[in-house]
């Protein structure tokens, strides 16, 4: 068991996957010689040579190339530096990967991965702080994962690279330096399986990505008032582990859904609808939705914190659910 940073765990997954499978190919802006702006691909260029490439700033084409290269035998792993740039890739995902994965049926597989990172809180401003989870989780045929712990970062990325379908890996810029234990033999983490980050009985805090960290802090606060909050880390946004959600809500009867994307038409809305569809009769209160305020993310710290939810907002939502 080793203590690893989240970024190191991702690096370990890439290194393992590239060692095991010569068709794994890593490309993106600044990923090769510099090792990635978040240092996730550090040392891989030296280890794997031309299978790790710096690219021009051409996200739209790079994503389309990842799709078509994967149709013809490559396992490309593309890094899109910020989730804010993901809209540039959307034609490749919505009109290419999603469509051909269906219309050509079993004649092709699409084993490509797009890694990107989103989230605010570091003063990166309106074009570098978004979490556009719903943009990608909306697309049929794609899988979307959002690891929170270093162990899951490694396990989910390994699983993503092995998967025959497109997988979007949503990392978070404020998680890269978090440290935790990663088992030496950490293998792939099955996609579509949520993780109970904390067991509880009074209210379910159902969260994604770094909002799991905030939800855990909220659970601490609620515990001081004698409230036992369960924290569910979804890990895979699509396909969604509906059973885990239903199991938790059936136990606590109160649900707070938390996602750092915008709220309106956002991923949290999907979670809320899922609970309505599958656990309505278990609800003892309306589902509380916690999401980023529906506006561009401002720069100044006092403004940014007013827009992106935190443990305080989650705590208040939990108390409203329990009222």
């Amino acid at each position: 068991m080793a203590i690893m940073r989240y970024a190191e765990a991702l690096n370990a997954a890439l290194r393992e996957a590239m060692t095991a499978d010569p068709s794994v190919f890593l490309f993106g802006e600044d990923v090769a010689d510099y090792g990635g702006v978040f240092k996730v691909s550090r040392g891989l260029r030296e280890a794997f040579g031309d299978r790790v490439r710096d690219t021009p700033i051409s996200e739209q084409t790079l994503a389309a190339m990842a799709v078509s290269a994967s149709m013809t035998g490559l396992r490309p792993v593309l890094e899109i530096m910020y989730a804010d740039f993901m809209p540039l890739t959307l034609d490749a995902l919505v009109n290419q990967a999603s469509v051909y994965g269906y219309v050509w049926g079993d004649e092709i597989t699409l084993p490509f991965v797009i890694r990107t990172q989103g989230g605010g809180g570091l003063g990166t401003g309106a074009q570098h702080a978004k979490s556009l989870d719903s943009f990608v989780a909306h697309i049929p045929g794609l899988k979307v994962v959002a690891p929170v712990t270093p162990a899951d970062a490694k396990g989910l990325l390994l699983a993503a690279i092995q998967d025959p379908h497109p997988v979007i890996v949503l990392e978070h810029k404020r998680l890269y330096n978090t440290r935790a234990e990663v088992p030496d033999d950490q293998g792939p983490v099955p996609l579509g399986r949520a993780r109970v980050a904390r067991d509880g009985s009074d209210v379910s805090l159902i969260a994604t990505s770094r909002m799991v960290v905030e939800a855990e802090a909220a659970a601490d606060r609620l515990a001081e008032s004698g409230i036992s909050a369960e924290v569910l880390d979804l890990r895979t946004l699509r396909p969604l582990d509906v059973e885990a959600i239903v199991r938790s809500v059936a136990k606590t009867r109160h649900a707070v859904v938390i996602n750092e994307d915008w709220g309106f038409c956002g991923y949290a809305a999907e979670l809320s609808a899922t609970i309505m569809e599958h656990a309505f009769d278990d609800l003892d209160a309306p589902v509380e939705r916690v999401a980023t305020r529906d506006m561009p993310i401002p720069f100044a710290e006092s403004l940014e914190t007013a827009v992106i939810p935190d443990a305080d907002v989650i705590t208040a939502a939990a108390l409203r659910a329990l009222a």
């Binding site: 509380e288 916690v290 999401a291 305020r293 007013a306 992106i308 939810p309 907002v313 939502a317």
Partner: peptide, 8 residues
């Protein structure tokens, strides 16, 4: 829906 309280 909940958003952080800010100036409205």
């Amino acid at each position: 829906m909940t958003t952080p309280t800010g100036t409205e």
